[in-house]
Computed example of a mutant assay.
Amino acid sequence: MALTTGQASLIVLGIYLGFGLLELVWTRLFRKDEQTRNDGILEAVSTLMLLAVTQPTILLVVGGIGHRFFPEYQGALAGISLFAAIALFLIFEDMMQYWWHQASHSFAWLYNLHRAHHNARYMSVRLVYRNNIIYYALMPSIWFAGVLVYLGLGWFYAGYIIVKMAVIIGAHSDVAWDAPLYRIKALSPLMWIVERTISTPATHHAHHGRHASDPAVHYKGNYGNLLFFWDVLFGTAKITRQYPVSYGVENLPPATLGQQLLWPIFPENKDMEARIPGAAPARPANR
């Protein structure tokens, strides 16, 4: 019997709360080093907006467009095999998110929408849904997921989202589940495969590291969400099995709360557009 969306949501919530409880016990969930008052507000608002407004609205809009213009395609893929469904979601949802994520670290206007995710000077499950509200509204992978659900793959999406969110939540938590496994020599071959297949704390923490001089930091890479394999395949992977000394964004002035939640509606701090960390310095304009 296939899981319903509601059941999948409850399981994801359980995974999230499980990692949150681990952080509460071991790494001070609500009192992270260098956190600010705005961090908690940003995380609460962006999480609530994504889960209660943005995702449901996108699904409704896609369904409405489908019913209006493409009614004959509703449920058209409902009978495909499990393996075909896996392939479609990995390509049109997870790989698409990889390219969107990479673009967000390559183009200034997209980076302005994504920077809120990196402003935190700590790692935590609190960061999982932390992003500009408009960033999520424009995210192609959410829209593609809506299309696949309309085409009849809702039965698969519920299970898929559990697996994906379990990986993403674990990769953001500062209770690094992979660290003790690296110390077990017998597991080294298995971990070699795991860290090249899915996102792990070590590989994803590298993407959140603050200083480019830190050997464990790879701010311009390690973009994968569920599959780290996309980074391996497209040459953006860096695997060190180490963790950055500190987290956040270097060489840019602080962004305001309004800017982090709703840039460009609140573009208070123009200096944040100076350059993208890790990118080549901008050329001076011709005069």
Rank of each mutant, 00 (worst) to 15 (best):
L3R: 07
Q7H: 11
Q7N: 11
Q7S: 10
S9R: 09
L10I: 15
Y16M: 14
F19V: 08
G20P: 02
Q35R: 08
R37W: 15
G40K: 11
A44Q: 13
T47Q: 12
T47P: 07
M49I: 13
L50P: 00
I58D: 06
L59K: 09
L60F: 06
I65K: 01
I65S: 03
I65W: 02
A76I: 08
A87P: 12
M95K: 01
Q97N: 12
Q97E: 13
Q102L: 11
L113W: 01
H117T: 12
Y122W: 11
S124T: 09
R126T: 15
Y129L: 13
R130W: 01
I134D: 02
Y135T: 01
P140N: 06
W143T: 00
V147R: 00
V147P: 03
L148E: 00
Y150L: 10
L153R: 06
Y157L: 05
A158G: 08
V163I: 15
V175N: 15
A176P: 00
I184A: 05
L187Q: 08
L190F: 10
R196H: 13
T197N: 06
P215C: 08
G224R: 04
G224S: 10
G224H: 09
L227N: 01
F229H: 09
F229M: 13
G235T: 01
Q242L: 09
N251V: 02
P253Y: 01
A255H: 05
T256R: 14
N269A: 10
M272E: 14
R275I: 03
I276A: 09
P281C: 07
N286Q: 06
R287L: 14
